[in-house]
């Protein structure tokens, strides 16, 4: 029962999803739409609540045990609760009863997203540019001809995307474009085909009940 019921459910709904586009009849179409738009969306919302609960508990534990960097857990928890109150009771665009505007100062959750999360996210990702440059210096040393290929193509693609590349030679942007369209496409296509076929094989193993690791430890 504990293993069989979830496994049967998985196989039944799996075949429902699999046959969705092969059964052009209103009944399976409605059922599939209900699965996608209602049932699975509600289930995924609960999964998110579980994840958030886990995050809160973990940081509360960090504070209780005074683990490494525990004061920063306060930052996380306070920012989470304050932003949650603003978002939940103020609405996505500040349309609900909780006030999200003081004079001309707007602080609804969408403004917080635009003014705090976007700068933070962009800064974090751009930080990688500095580290990639130093990593490239260490790893791209031309030790053999394959490393020279890697270094050369990276260099040409980088030069091809900035005005100085065109200034050096108008051919550089064209060579960069050719690298992206021919050898890069070939390599990416080969890798992607391999990955997709592997994923499909795993999916079929899950659907046929051969792969059961998702059932967990069996407790």
């Amino acid at each position: 029962m504990k293993d069989k019921l979830p496994l049967i459910l998985l196989i039944v709904v799996g075949f429902m999803g699999l046959t969705d586009r092969f059964l052009p009849h209103p009944a399976p179409e409605h059922l599939n739409q209900y699965m996608r738009d209602t049932l699975l969306r509600i289930i995924s919302a609960f999964a998110l609540i579980l994840g958030l609960g886990n995050l809160i508990l973990r940081h509360m534990n960090r504070i209780r045990k005074k683990s490494t960097d525990w004061p920063h857990s306060y930052t996380l928890l306070i920012s989470f609760f304050v932003a949650s109150v603003i978002g939940l009771f103020g609405g996505v665009a500040g349309e609900l009863w909780f006030p999200t505007r003081v004079g001309t100062f707007d602080f609804n959750i969408t403004t917080i997203y635009n003014q705090m999360l976007i700068p933070l996210g962009a800064s974090m990702f751009s930080l990688l540019a500095f580290y990639m440059a130093s990593a490239a210096y260490r790893s791209f040393r031309a030790r053999n001809w394959l490393a020279i290929l890697l270094l050369g193509s990276a260099f040409i693609v980088m030069l091809g995307q900035v005005p100085i590349g065109y200034r050096i030679s108008p051919a550089i942007p064209e060579i960069s474009q050719w690298i992206m369209e021919v050898p890069n496409t070939a390599a990416k296509r080969g890798i992607e085909l391999g990955i997709t076929l592997g994923v499909l094989a795993t999916f079929l193993k899950i659907l046929s009940g051969i792969e059961r690791s998702w059932l967990g430890s069996g407790r």
Binding site: K2, D3, L5, P6, L7, L9, L10, I11, V12, V13, G14, F15, M16, G17, L18, T19, D20, M35, R36, L39, L40, I43, S44, F46, A47, F203, I206, L207, W214, L215, G216
Partner: peptide, 14 residues
């Protein structure tokens, strides 16, 4: 396992 089975099964099949 039940919500996991429903979610995973449907999207794996699809």
């Amino acid at each position: 396992r039940i919500p996991i089975a429903l979610f995973m099964g449907y999207y794996v099949g699809r």
